[in-house]
């Protein structure tokens, strides 16, 4: 039982990263009905952008800044203008399929132009262990958890306390009415795409030191975030946060106590049970069936 605390902290740390990705996912869904199947690849790419900048000779801190800026440009602005805008009016499904194609394209591009092998990635949190209540907890997990929580709190403040946040929520809840009362809906939608790009870049920065930078690493991550979003509630930011943390903890505990072979099954079974008994998610609002 002594490593339960360590498992819990590690689970919360990965869960907090899942939460970042899941929040971006739900934001895109809420404001523009985009189901982004490339969300996992969106997390994979910024690490490679940062590595590319570092290969060009830049120091780590500069690589982080440039990597985040490039992500905002490519995964925020570029994604919205080039793929989402032309397809949005044609409904949910064609766009979802297009993001699947985008995921294939991004994976192949990284494999071709960078490397098919896993590359190590420097951590922004120093390695080492600290002792809490007599048990040893890895410093990296704690650092990741602290950073992710700070970002989540910042985002919640932005959404709930500022005028821009209120305008974004209005856009998400009812674009037509939001437009009538003078919210610049288009700009708010763009904003959510930029926030999503920022969140995935940050998640990339936090998770890549743990799992290495690999072109295929987005598959697992994207699915985890997807499940987190549904379990927590597809239409709620705080639902996605809770879902992310829950999936992270459940995943880690399942690996330790159930079986390593079927660890991936536990979150999925959780997903099916949630959909059967509480389809709107743990914290979500039920959606009305429209006629």
């Amino acid at each position: 039982m002594s490593n339960l605390l360590d498992l819990l902290v590690a689970g919360l740390a990965t869960g907090a990263i899942y939460a970042l990705v899941a929040v971006g996912f739900t934001l895109l869904w809420q404001t523009s009905q985009t189901i982004n199947f490339a969300q996992g690849e969106f997390v994979m790419l910024p690490a490679f952008l940062m590595l590319a900048v570092m290969h060009a000779g830049a120091p780590f801190w500069l690589a982080i800044i440039l990597g985040i800026l490039l992500s905002l440009l490519l995964l925020g602005l570029g994604f919205k203008l080039l793929l989402v805008d032309p397809m949005l009016r044609h409904g949910v499904l064609p766009l979802a399929i297009a993001t699947m194609a985008l995921a294939i394209g991004m994976k192949e591009a990284v494999k071709q132009f960078f490397s098919a092998e896993a590359s190590p990635f420097p951590s922004i949190v120093p390695a080492g262990d600290v002792s809490i209540l007599g048990t040893v907890v890895s410093l990296q997990s704690l650092g990741v958890l602290a950073l992710a929580i700070a970002v989540v709190i910042g985002l919640t403040m932005l959404l709930n306390r500022t005028s821009i946040g209120h305008q974004m929520q209005a856009t998400a809840q009812n674009p037509t009415v939001a437009r009538i009362i003078g919210v610049p809906v288009e700009r708010m939608i763009l904003m959510t795409f930029l926030i999503n790009a920022f969140l995935v870049a940050l998640a990339s920065l936090l998770i890549t030191p743990i799992y290495l930078a690999k072109f295929s690493s987005g598959e697992v991550l994207g699915q985890a975030a997807f499940i987190a979003a549904i379990v927590g509630g597809f239409n709620q930011v705080r639902g996605a946060i809770a879902g992310g943390l829950l999936i992270g903890v459940v995943d880690n505990l399942a690996a330790a106590y159930v079986s390593t072979q079927y660890r991936a099954a536990v979150p999925l079974i959780l997903l099916i049970v949630i959909i059967l008994f509480r389809p709107q998610g743990l914290l979500g609002r039920p959606e009305e069936r429209t006629v």
Binding site: L83, P86, M87, H90, G91, P94, L95, I97, A98, A101, L102, I104, G105, E108, A109, K111, Q112
Partner: peptide
Amino acid sequence: GYYLMLYAVAVMLLLIYSPT
């Protein structure tokens, strides 16, 4: 090495041009 990349781009362009 580019074939799957080109395939992905082709699918995206097709869907942008004709979502049906």
